[in-house]
Design a protein around this nucleic acid. Structure first.
Lengths: 232, 232
DNA sequence: CTGTCTAAGAGGCTAGTCCAGTGAGCCAGT
DNA sequence: ACTGGCTCACTGGACTAGCCTCTTAGACAG
């Protein structure tokens, strides 16, 4: 569904201090048994303890704030948000790679719904984008490729055709999880031709504006694909 | 991604410079028609243009990086991530409050799946938590309350019983959207007794480990609740 | 008791400085 | 002509020192 480093050539990971700090602070929160509403140590204090400058620590705090873990209040301090679970979930997602089944599950849930909505709401333009993706995929497969680019385009077109910014956002979220856990191969079918055929079936249902058939076809497609993935 | 606001008592919004910068940079990206892969102006340059110090700008860039909008590379610059859509989606979510139908839709999709999974995977402990939530809700309603606390607990218990960290994460994401757009009333039923009854039906299906019935009951519940909400 | 003031300590932000990657361009050696 | 190595300008990464504003607790006056 997405690629950063092409051809397996992994760009050297550029370590960012603030990222390490986020991890350390998360670990600290857990080890210190801090509960929602509790305060983190003062910036000057924390910076010294962690051996970094305040400016750098400030970056880490911004990151934690964006992640929803803390809420920094001027004059008071950094207070833990009410859902410390988020912190552990994020940590868990980073650490364990065993989430594949869960991610497949979540993705399946969303994509089935997206297919159904796409059938109801697709414009002719959406349909054109879907057909375009199919053509690209067919061409790629014909050239001996796996057709992964077309596959990606296809799913993006479906997502767009559902016309739901919120669901699209959730899909983007899952895409990030997939990237983070380095399971980029997810969603790349074992047999390109077979996958192309099920794509065509989905597209046909969407063209016919048959929501139920679209959902069914998408479910079948995902089950096929993830079965292959999970068994290798 | 988080504001404080406790019990409707709006704490004066403390503007953080980096937050404004994020908005401005987002606007700049849009106005300058930057595409994925393009570079943002250099930090020194950008900081001067925006009239802030580099340290503050660095915070804004961290926020944008966490949000997945850019990827900052040492020696090269801040390059736009592959999905500029994320930027516009986030902006759109902030600006428009007309997303309620979409949010209901997304929530419904997830909760139906969660109910179904909960039926399959619930432990006795999960069941106890669900029953506990029902009891609290019943007590609240009996006391003349709307039972919103029990309602929240109930949905949390269902989410936990599904045993999927990924889906739970997505639910948390939606919860944040709801908070952000100040539609906290979402999910609070018009008629408490009616809602309690449909909760009981869901709980019964989960107890019986009947996934299909659980999904159906949850769907019915959400349709009831959101209808009331959308029509007022 | 109650209201006011103050000072300590919290975060917010700036300016200046130095370090460390990146990449284009030059220039020799082959 | 090409290759390799070097330099240098430019980019982000991080630190330091300092001053600002905000919050809050406690002293103090009424």
């Amino acid at each position: 569904m997405e690629k950063t480093a092409r051809q397996g050539l992994e760009r050297v990971s550029r370590p960012r201090l603030y990222e390490q700090l986020v991890e350390q602070i998360l670990a600290y929160i857990e080890s210190a048994q801090l509960r929602p509403g509790d305060l983190l140590p003062a910036e000057r204090d924390l910076a010294e303890r962690l051996g970094v400058s305040r400016a750098t620590l400030a970056q880490a705090l911004v990151a934690l704030e964006v992640l929803g873990v803390i809420d920094v209040q001027h004059g008071t301090g950094a207070v833990l948000a009410r859902r410390p679970s988020v912190a552990s979930v994020i940590k868990g997602l980073r650490e364990h790679q065993s989430r594949l089944p869960e991610i497949v599950e979540a993705r399946s849930t969303l994509e089935v719904k997206l297919a159904s909505l796409a059938a109801e709401r697709r414009t002719d333009q959406d349909l054109a984008a879907i057909d375009n993706a199919l053509n690209i995929m067919a061409k790629e497969i014909n050239d001996g490729d796996r057709g992964s680019h077309g596959d990606e385009l296809f799913h993006q077109a479906i997502t767009a055709a559902a016309h739901s910014a919120v669901l699209a956002q959730l899909m983007a979220f899952i895409a990030e999880m997939i990237l983070e856990t380095r399971m980029e191969s997810l969603g790349q079918p074992g047999r390109p031709e077979q996958s192309l055929a099920s794509h065509r079936k989905i597209a046909a249902a969407i063209r016919a504006q048959d929501a139920k058939a679209a959902a069914k076809a998408m479910l079948a497609h995902i089950e096929l694909v993830s079965d292959v993935e999970l068994l290798r």
